[in-house]
Design a protein around this nucleic acid. Structure first.
Lengths: 233, 233
DNA sequence: AAGGCTTCTGGACAACTGTCAAGACTTTCC
DNA sequence: GGAAAGTCTTGACAGTTGTCCAGAAGCCTT
């Protein structure tokens, strides 16, 4: 039984909030450390040094290291998804949405590169450490849903039909972003511009203009290409 | 100066080969350990325990841990690319190539999941550990070229034109494979079938039928060269 | 002021890490 | 055979790690 669970029954609400608040504070320090050093080189003492407390306190608020990291992953999720839903809500044309989406990705890459480096690190860790897997899968799904909302809205605004399912759409943009991150952190000066260009080029390929009846593959491909050509003009 | 470099001037060729051979042997043990435990939890003693030797010998054949891991990454590359070029060489129709490519990815996922788990782990590590970055980028580029050979040949066989540049094509399939790996290792029974289906569905989206009827010999190559130029900029 | 919680500190522990060096064993060569 | 070079083992080292704990410090009620 965790200390948090023990306390809920017998202490006041404000104390619980304070307890939870400190957990958040410590998790923030942990996330900062993780994004700087990576999972492999982050120790509890290092985390404590990035906070206002000593290393012992971490075991007062978290059962063990896995408990702390898991909490961090969860906290990261909340911070992660919210950004793009505003873009979806405000864009009034397909072009504006595409521009906003691409620009959002570029900004994310530039401003939060370390944060997303951490995300890819932890997602890779979850391939080995089973404890992280459930949370990682949950975050991954929420990211997939976010991408799906964007491309769905894009199709809607263009009165078009989506030709790829949700997991494929997510995998594509995730691959593009990860590639851009690697090159950006490697010092490539064109990584930001490349990402923007590629996202803008890819997005129209995911839809085809809605027509009566089922779409023929050939027609869809031509349409996608035509749309892309008109877009870049 | 490494021990290997010291020796080259004054010992026989066979001794150098033997030295290099043992390095390979030890690197194999290291790769096996890494693919089992992940980078974060792999120690030199654990590697030695997966070999026929004691832990001290690792510092006889490798300067330090980074030297060993870097060597492993390089060795991994050789093992990695060769698989798909045969598929490109033998396929006589676009459909057969698509089937062979999808089946190759599925087989790779099923048979070498741990190996590729290691690859994604090390690629993530390279985001933090600068020592790995050059090798990781080199492997990444060779994988990108491999994907490009496949989709190029696919377009050629279908008398079609590619509508996405090389980095985008690689990012898409890399994203798809990584997604499939995560779900496969998480116990999803449909991960293999999903990957096959999605690859087969995605591949035709990358090309559009050439409209002039005659294929321009240089068009694709120009596109490829433009891509490379923008990449190195 | 006193006592009982909660919160936090700092030290201790065993286990583990990369690295290194002294020496033993093996092979090669004169 | 014997010296020299190459190969490998073993133990040690200094540092780090996660974890735990005794107790100090703060806070609140009585």
């Amino acid at each position: 039984m965790t200390k948090a669970a023990e306390r809920i029954d017998r202490v006041s609400r404000s104390q619980v909030d304070k307890f939870e608040e400190r957990r958040k504070t410590l998790a923030d320090a942990a996330i900062q450390t993780l994004s700087e050093l990576g999972y492999a080189r982050t120790s509890l003492r290092e985390i404590a040094q990035n906070s206002a407390f000593s290393h012992g306190v971490l075991h007062y608020y978290f059962r063990d290291k896995v408990d702390l990291i898991t909490y961090c992953v969860r906290q990261y999720k909340a911070h992660c998804v919210q950004r793009y839903d505003q873009i979806v809500a405000t864009a009034r044309t397909g072009d504006a949405l595409a521009q906003g989406f691409a620009e959002g990705l570029v900004q994310t890459l530039r401003d939060e590169a370390l944060m997303h480096r951490l995300w890819y690190d932890l997602r890779s860790q979850s391939l080995f450490e089973e404890s992280f897997r459930a949370d990682v899968l949950e975050i991954d799904q929420s990211l997939e849903r976010m991408i799906w909302r964007i491309v769905s809205r894009f199709a809607e605004l263009g009165d078009a039909r989506l030709v790829v399912p949700s997991p494929v759409a997510y995998a594509m943009f995730d691959g593009l972003f990860q590639q851009a991150l690697l090159h950006y952190l490697s010092g490539s000066g064109s990584a930001l511009a490349d990402l923007r260009e590629r996202v803008l080029q890819l997005l129209p390929h995911l839809v085809c203009p809605s027509q009566s009846g089922t779409t023929q593959p050939g027609a869809r491909l031509v349409a996608a290409h035509q749309q892309r050509a008109s877009h870049s003009a």
